[in-house]
Design a binder for these strands. Structure first.
Lengths: 343, 343
DNA sequence: CAGTTATTCACATACGTATTCAGAATTATG
DNA sequence: CATAATTCTGAATACGTATGTGAATAACTG
């Protein structure tokens, strides 16, 4: 046994065949006899031979690797990855593994030059983009990716005129509608929305629009001052809720654009001496793990991150294989806990 | 401009030099003149040239990639990654990026054959192992890794006769001591421990031992029945706490081997109509993000996951470079919140 | 100015695999 | 028994980069 890492030549020598035959045998080519294949496989196993990924990828021009990029926007601090996307990580990892692909992972500032890397250097065959970034920053980068022919899918708003690239996302509009309808059905009449409602954050905007539709359909009015901008952090939710309280606008419910915002808002409301859900009902969005641990447990709109991960990976693989692939919208689902005051 | 992905030959042609000169120029070799290097760099930039990772790795026999493995033991369900390790992920990812290394990620069953892959196939130069697995399963795999000369570091118990490979971990013994001392200082006299105390989970065992020392030092007795086995899940913590309550043993405090266990225990205790911290004080371990959201906010022993990530990566890189590297023990730190009843 | 040294680059080659093409061995066919 | 069809295998080569070696030029030195 040679002291170096065994190559296909070593196996060939031991098996009394040529190197190409070894390669063919291990890849299951039909043009190698059953008998020699068995023999070669046995030797390979015995030597603990593994195909050299770099040589193989170089030759085939396929890395069988996907790159997963998280955006840290808007909080570049050390923990600033949205827990919702972290939950998706498990599903993406497992699906990639099932499809025999490796997964590269990276955290990036949305403002950085992440768009010029992975596929050009043949590290990965395609990219998955996760993050609710400021769309004004995001869009130009996406355009560049499309222009240079990079294969990618992303989580975000599906449909609409701003859609760029193949997008997988949840039905934010319907999710907002479900949340507002639920609050209305339980007697709330003045529903505030915490979250950016501008085109910079299309997902948040759609959630707001969905809620507005439900509110209008119920014949309630949408009072001015009932929407406060908030980014996707607990602190931002805390600030926004405090601002809402201080403004003196009358409200008996909050629909937060995300669970993180909702959790921050809960803190602000309790600090103000108000009771949840008696005085103020709250509904979040995402169903992150912390939602069920919040006090009171947070009613929220669940995005199916498990299916999401599978769809993201499978859609990307289709694109890599040159097939066409459509965006996909996953249904939103209301998860009722205690914070909304439902019995 | 050729339609295909540009290679170093393309650049060479445009710059009027040979391919090796391009390679040397881009790698900053001193044996290429400033002037031609500038010229080559400009052309490379213009063509958006990226070094082919596979070719480069094949030639240098270095992938500049690290593999990160999470173990799902003991819960193979779809969300079963310890949040504590997920927190470490951010730090590891960023450190790897700063060291110009890519990061492959994978979730594995502890019982699977994860040990025979990454380095043999030259996908990665080394491996980081994260997970509190049953040591009886873990140890044989570690032995195999060592035997085949794989470069790896892992999170776990530092020191002790069972240590295998280079290990980075927290001072579990001292952490347990801090927790127990804190409870004792606030008047608790019957401290229960929830967590496996056997050699199968050395980290948990050490936390228990540290607590025992503090209890003994305070002249309190360690009653039988005050230790209940629990694995690192919320459900397991819930079950263990319920078992403790049902057993009728007198206790006024719980030290849980992890925050997940603690959070489960909180639920069981409140279900039993007891008040935290008045009737029962609770301290956890890890300081996962959910700890501060628990109700009441969980006092816990913090492991510095940020430093941990850096040390793991840097230690692994040392090993890869053939330098020797020692294990490293990070200090534990008590984070006082509400669940322990301190004022 | 001859001789020496330093600088800068090109030639040739290796990394380990996968694939094209052609040839050898085997079997089938008239 | 000669020829054709079939099955299997080997020789040659390409993927794109990095590096040892040596040749040419430029820069000094006495």
């Amino acid at each position: 046994m040679p002291p170096h890492k065994p190559t296909s030549f070593d196996i060939a020598q031991l098996a009394g065949v040529s190197q190409p035959t070894v390669s063919r045998a291990l890849r299951g080519s039909p043009s190698v006899s059953e008998q020699t294949r068995k023999r070669i496989e046995a030797i390979a196993q015995q030597l603990n031979y593994k195909v050299d990924k770099n040589a193989s990828s170089l030759r085939t021009q396929r890395s069988n690797t996907l790159a997963l990029l998280f955006f840290e926007d808007p909080t570049p601090d050390e923990t600033g990855i949205n827990p919702f996307f972290l939950s998706m990580l498990a599903s993406i990892t497992r699906t990639a593994a099932r499809r025999n692909h490796d997964l590269l992972i990276s955290f990036q500032q949305l403002s950085a030059n992440w768009h010029v890397d992975y596929e050009d250097s043949r590290k990965a065959d395609g990219i998955i983009l996760l993050g609710y970034g400021d769309y004004e920053l995001y869009q130009p980068k996406l355009e560049q990716l499309i222009q240079q022919g990079t294969h990618f899918v992303r989580w975000g708003m599906v449909g609409g005129q701003d859609e760029m690239g193949t997008t997988i996302g949840c039905d934010n509009m319907d999710g907002g509608k479900l949340a507002a309808e639920h609050l209305i059905a339980h007697g709330r009449e003045h529903i505030a929305f915490l979250g950016d409602a501008s085109n910079h954050y299309p997902e948040f905007r759609d959630r707001y629009l969905g809620a507005q539709h439900a509110i209008a359909a119920a014949g309630l009015d949408i009072a001015a001052g009932l929407q406060i901008d908030a980014l996707n952090t607990e602190q931002s939710g805390f600030d926004a809720a405090q601002q809402l309280i201080d403004s003196g606008v009358k409200f008996d419910a909050i629909f937060a654009a995300s669970d993180l915002i909702a959790i921050g808002a809960i803190r602000a409301i309790e600090d103000a001496g108000l009771n949840i859900p008696r005085d103020i009902a709250i509904i979040g969005f995402d169903d992150i793990p912390a939602a069920s641990l919040a006090h009171p447990p947070l009613t929220t709109v669940q995005q199916d991150y498990r299916t999401a991960g599978e769809v993201l990976v499978d859609t990307l693989l289709k694109l890599i294989e040159g097939k066409s692939a459509e965006g996909y919208m996953l249904p939103a689902k209301l998860v009722v806990r205690k914070s909304c005051g439902a019995h």
